[in-house]
Write a protein that binds this DNA or RNA. Sequence first.
DNA 1: TTTTTATTTTTTTTATACAAAAAACATTCT
DNA 2: AGAATGTTTTTTGTATAAAAAAAATAAAAA
Lengths: 303, 303
Amino acid sequence: MARTDDRFRLAYQELLSVVATLPIGADLPPELALADQLNISRTTVRAVLTAFSDAGLLEWQGRKKTVLRAPTAKDRLAIRDEYLPREELERRFLKWVLRFDVAAGTPLNVAKLAKEFSVPPHVLQEFLSGLSQFGLVARRPRGGWLLLGFTAEYAIELSEFRAVLELNAVRTLVHLPQSHPIWDRLTALEKQHNDLAARIDRDFHDFSPLDEAFHHAITSVVQNRFVKQFQKVITLIFHYHYQWDKRMERHRNEAAIREHLAIIQALRSGDETAAAEAAAAHLRTSKETLLASLRSNALIAEG
Amino acid sequence: MARTDDRFRLAYQELLSVVATLPIGADLPPELALADQLNISRTTVRAVLTAFSDAGLLEWQGRKKTVLRAPTAKDRLAIRDEYLPREELERRFLKWVLRFDVAAGTPLNVAKLAKEFSVPPHVLQEFLSGLSQFGLVARRPRGGWLLLGFTAEYAIELSEFRAVLELNAVRTLVHLPQSHPIWDRLTALEKQHNDLAARIDRDFHDFSPLDEAFHHAITSVVQNRFVKQFQKVITLIFHYHYQWDKRMERHRNEAAIREHLAIIQALRSGDETAAAEAAAAHLRTSKETLLASLRSNALIAEG
DNA sequence: TTTTTATTTTTTTTATACAAAAAACATTCT
DNA sequence: AGAATGTTTTTTGTATAAAAAAAATAAAAA
């Protein structure tokens, strides 16, 4: 019925390991210094010091904080991890949605879902509110939430939006001076692509991280918070989807490598139209792959 | 200590006006029909019917709901409006941020702000979480929220992102067939622009809605939920900003009208490059205006 | 048998309580 | 005087309660 003392427990553990490195009789630094070091407030530092004093680890009198004995295993404090951090929630929820564990259009029960995902209800509520910005869920007219789901239409629009952002990046990139670090980065990526192409029969699983690195390198030349924001979601969705759809993986990856290499060459040529066309071709393939896997999955779900 | 009965009160009022149109002795439709009509659940309908029965307005026995007397002024129920609807909160908050009533980088007190904006705290919390997606606020490392504010950098990146979306729309639009309704829409807008240009000295205030209509028409040719989502925010921010910065308004609007007309002509020519260039020129002006007003406002705030 | 109503169960939304943590303020010691 | 500590006040995050509303189920009437 109050907020958790996770922060206290974490600080306790951390300070314990600091004390373990000190000889008996040594003095600890001032409260404020400890607070800065542990990244917590002085109040929490004092709470930890009090606990240490109670445990007989410390003699604490005014500004004198003397180590009495070395900490033992018994002094350790259990860290409760009932709740997931926000990032983990995001990861799990997206996975849940993208794997079609639930049908599009089903109402979501906040209380139940919160339990299922091991977060307090208000955290889930907040999370859903954020997701609604990306159109995966929506608030129902008379309360509650609705899962809109990862439909074919959604995939199409996501792909198209991705294309808009990425083509913009390509158009910017092609005019960057030779001194810009992106060119070295592209050369390195080109080599990695050629390497993987040589051993694609065996290591086609290695493509996914390389794909992400490639697209990240291209889009990174646009320094814009809104672009970055969306790029994050796009990457996430494409990432999970790749992980999950294993059909034709080898063939698909081989084709993608060729397309990536073509883009790099076109970029080097300095011809904006050619570069944009090469990138557009790749994005079209990517979109088709996504749609094909969606269709086949829909058949599986029905059958 | 429970949820408000606003929905009940609203339904009560609505049904009251329905009863007022009926003669004494008439029967009301079934509960489910009323629920559909009032857009509430049957439970709430029954609560209203019970209240009517208690007030002697209705004889309610089973499925017989007979009107006993015409409603009077006394029967009316006060609608409490302590809380703002979500949209209104969005409007007010953006206004508050864009008018620099608070400096960038200040911590936000959720409880106080919730009172100030007349919403329950958890609604504000959710709202802030949504706003953080657009980078206007951020969660602080150790709890609470931070107002990042509408800085010059933010304005630049917003303008650039707007340009990306709008140029994409222009590139799509220019290739649309003559049968597409956008062309008639543009012709109508062209006429409105010419009309306003003729009387700009007097009616320069009329430009703002015309500007919105123009940009909305252009971007509407791209049917993409992500684009639309962002367009909403962009429009909102530019809108409030226009409303608030009154310097050089006449001159600024006159120039914008010319630029809009140039864009329409370039679009008609079917030349993608020319159209994109005309649009880009206008977006550059727009960005400069936004930045100039930001700078001058910063000076005012300091002085 | 279908429609409508009565009743019960869930779910959502708000309010409140309370401990944890942070921040602000006052005091003491060197 | 300046740094460090002691104390008090705010603020935040979580749990719980309670009312309102919705949804589901059972019963009754046409």
